[in-house]
Design a protein around this nucleic acid. Sequence first.
DNA 1: TATTATGATTTCTG
DNA 2: CAGAAATCATAATA
Length: 345
Amino acid sequence: MDEQPRLMHSHGVGMAGHPGLAQHMQDGTAGTDGEGRKQDIGDILQQIMTITDQSLDEAQARKHALNCHRMKPALFNVLCEIKEKTVLSIRGAQEEEPPDPQLMRLDNMLLAEGVAGPEKGGGSAAAAAAAAATGGIGADNSAEHSDYRAKLSQIRQIYHTELEKYEQACNEFTTHVMNLLREQSRTRPISPKEIERMVSIIHRKFSSIQMQLKQSTCEAVMILRSRFLDARRKRRNFNKQATEILNEYFYSHLSNPYPSEEAKEELAKKCGITVSQVSNWFGNKRIRYKKNISKFQEEANMYAARTAVNATSVSAHGSQANSPSTPNSAGGYPSPCYQPDRRIQ
DNA sequence: TATTATGATTTCTG
DNA sequence: CAGAAATCATAATA
C-alpha cells in the first residue's frame, strides 16, 4: 500500500500529457462546467504529488479522502490504461505461452495408456489395444491382463484423485488471488487484464506440479507395463502342438535347420506364434542340440520315426530318398551347418 | 525346494 | 543384419 505514492509519482509525469485524460474525466461528470473540473483535477494531482511530504496521519487522511473522491474510478481507469500500454504490453508480448511439448507428450502417453481420457470403457479398451499391439498374440493371457488392468485402474484412480486435488488447489488459490486483487483494486489501479495475467502466471506455476503428477503417473505405468507385459518375465511355454510342429520341422531338416523367411512365416502361422518367436525357437534349438546331441537323441529318433511313417503312408515306398535327415546316425547337423553350400552332394 | 527346461534378450561375429 | 553363444528369468518338474 505504501508504494502507491511512488507508483503514482512515477507515472504522474506521463499522465499529465495523456491525450485521453480530459475526456475520461469528463465522462464521469456529464460534461458540465469543464473549466472548474480541470481545476479540480489539477488540485487532485497536486495532492497526489505532495502526499509523500506529509506526515503519516495526514497522509492516511488524505488517502482516504482521495479514495472516496468521485473522480477516483475515472482516474484509475486512466492509470490502468497507461499501465497496460506500458508495462503490461511489453511483458505480455513475450508471454504468449506455447503448449509445452513435454506436457503434451505426457498427456498423449496417458491418453494412450488409458489413464487419462474417458472413463473405464474406452480407457481399458485403449489399454488392451496397446497391450495387444506390443504383446503380439492375445490368446491365453487374459488372466494376467485382468491383473494388469486392475493395477492400471488403480493408478488411474490415484491419478484422477490427485488431479482433482490439484485442480481444486489451483482454483482455490486463483480465486483467492483474484479476490485479493479485486480488493486491492479499490486502493490501487488494477486492470482486468492484469488480473487475467496474474491468473495465467498462477496457472503456469501450478502446471509444473501437474507435470510432476503426470510424470510420476507415466513412470508408474511404465513400471507396471514392464512388470506385467514383459514377455520375458511372463514367459509361457508354447503349447504342445506348436512345439511338435517346430520339432518336426527341426528334425526333418536336421542337416540344415535354417527355415527360410517364408518357412518361418508358415511355421509361425501354424503354431500361432510370431515369426521372431520361431526364429528364437530355432536359435535356441540349434545351439542346445549342438551342445548336447546325445541328450536329444531320443527326441530325434522319435520325430524321425514319425516323419518316416508319414512319408511311407503318403508315397508307397522309397521315402527316405528325399528326406534330408538320416535320423539313425544323428549328429548330421553340426557338420553340414558349417558347410552350408553342401557342395559334397 | 533345488534342478532342469525353455522362451527371450544381449552380446558378439562374419 | 542373421545367426551363434552366453545369459537371464520364469515355468515345469523331481
